[in-house]
């Protein structure tokens, strides 16, 4: 029975917030500089990938990621722990990315074109799995912005619905509903593509 297998999961309190970074944030507040390096090590990949999805450019994504952590370094002493450190970092990452896009509006178009060209000519080792990947990516790109954001944060950044809701600035319930329709739409798009 499915309910028996799910028993350990069901026992978890829903409202419980487990933030493995809270202790690091506390240590940093008391002057432990190394705690910040550990936070960087834990989250730089996630932050970079999130920024990369907005900027679509590797080099700029590294610069913006650096910016994100510089802001976090300045702000972590005042961080009150109302969200997880990760979702707080991701919020900074989204803000920095949007700000970068605003500041580089004119350059962005050509860089995206260049980036798209690179992705259009993958190496031979990638061709095999790329067809499904490309279809899925194209399907995700067609999602309405909110659904796309919720799906990406959940699937690619592996965030909880609570964190997704914080970053998407909606209720947890709305995040769950948006996630449902995003997946439903992906299935429709992929089903239609396969049917063609």
């Amino acid at each position: 029975m499915e309910s028996v297998a799910l028993a350990p999961l069901l026992a978890r309190p829903v409202t419980e917030i487990i933030d493995p970074d809270r202790e690091l944030a506390e240590r940093f507040r008391t002057g432990d500089r190394d705690a910040f390096d550990q936070i960087v090590r834990r989250h730089q990949k996630g932050v970079w990938r999130l920024v990369r999805r907005y900027l679509r450019n590797d080099a700029d994504s590294s610069d913006v990621t650096q910016q994100v952590f510089v802001r976090a370094f300045k702000g972590l002493v005042s961080f009150r722990g109302q969200s997880s450190v990760r979702s707080w970092l991701y919020r900074i990452a989204i803000n920095c990315s949007l700000s970068w896009i605003r500041d580089h509006r004119h350059e962005t178009a050509s860089e995206i074109a260049e980036d798209a060209l690179t992705e259009a000519h993958p190496g031979p080792e990638r061709i095999a799995g790329d067809q499904d990947n490309a279809q899925l990516r194209a399907a995700i790109a067609q999602l309405p912005p909110k659904q796309k954001l919720v799906l990406e944060l959940r699937v690619f950044d592996d965030l909880s619905f609570r964190e997704v809701a914080e970053l998407a600035e909606c209720s947890e319930n709305t995040a769950k509903v948006n996630f449902h329709y995003a997946v439903k739409r992906l299935r429709d798009i992929l089903g239609g593509t396969r049917g063609d």
Binding site: W48, R52, P122, N133, I140, L186
Partner: peptide
């Protein structure tokens, strides 16, 4: 979706 290979040079 989770198996999508990142198409970037990290």
């Amino acid at each position: 979706s989770r198996a999508i290979v990142p198409s970037t040079n990290e």
